[in-house]
Amino acid sequence: MTDLAHVDATTVDSTTIVRVRGEIDLSNAAEVRDAIGAAVPDATTSIVLDLSDTAYLDSAGIAMIFRLAERLGYNRQELRLVVPPDAPIRAVIRLTQMDRIIPTHHSVD
């Protein structure tokens, strides 16, 4: 894992919560994707990507999340995002209309 971002995951029943802390950009998007994939068990049916502590997200990161959602969909796994209203990345999510394609919540709860 790069110094730029850290990925950790918690699985409760069939739901896995993956938290990404740090920054996602061109340099580490692929690594973050792989880290998320590795953190998600096959038995999980619902994945929550918590971006509350994500300080930076660029177009490479957006593209990565779209592809992740697509791939999980093949496995009948559902992806949801958590983006708080005051998150630094909220403008990026809004501008790319990601919250319209992927179910997005303000908090994990």
Binding site: D58, S59, I62, A63, L95, T96
Partner: peptide, 11 residues
Amino acid sequence: GGWGLQLIRGL
């Protein structure tokens, strides 16, 4: 994708 320029223009 074209997200980059879209983001720049949007921001």
